[in-house]
């Protein structure tokens, strides 16, 4: 049996973390191909709907990454996001989503190394948890 390969939906803010992913590429830092990236202008753009949708769709993991506190291109977007993410993260774990399915990070556009390291960490954590089984909207089975 081949090893389980998770699918991780990754939201990257355009100014910092997307740039960090670009830099990780320029630097040829290798990490497993489990992520599917969605570029957003700011981590503050990421709504709870997007994260819930990803889990409902069957994503094994979700990762949201933005600029470091203070570095936000839009001044305060990531500060508001931080509160939303914390409350949402707590609630998801509270209803039984395993710790380690949802990840958040602050990665600046100069931190290609950190990007690759966090990517590896996220992928490894989600891989260990195995396929997601909760919060998935299953299509009605045809009899």
């Amino acid at each position: 049996m081949s090893e389980f390969e998770p699918k991780i939906i990754t939201f990257l803010c355009n100014w910092c973390s997307y740039g960090a992913a670009d830099l990780a590429g320029v630097s040829r830092f290798q990490y497993p191909p489990s992520m599917r990236v969605i570029r957003v202008p700011c981590s503050g753009r990421v709504s709870p709907k997007m994260i819930l949708s990803a889990f409902r769709k069957g994503a094994d993991g979700v990762w949201v990454s933005g600029c470091h506190p203070g570095d936000c291109h839009y001044i305060s977007g990531n500060y508001y996001a931080r509160r939303k993410f914390d409350v949402l993260n707590e609630m998801l774990e509270y209803v039984g989503i395993e710790k380690g399915r949802l990840h958040f990070s602050w990665i600046s556009s100069a931190e290609g190394v950190k990007f690759a390291a966090v990517a590896k960490d996220v992928i490894e954590t989600v891989t260990k948890l195995g396929p997601a089984k909760k919060f998935i909207k299953k299509l009605p089975e045809v009899a």
Binding site: P69, S76, Y79, Y80, R83, F85, D86, S105, W106
Partner: peptide, 16 residues
């Protein structure tokens, strides 16, 4: 309400 505000030193530990 809490989610319409922020503080610079809000909890950050859950973020890598």
């Amino acid at each position: 309400p809490a989610l319409d505000q922020y503080k610079i030193n809000d909890p950050n530990e859950f973020i890598k």
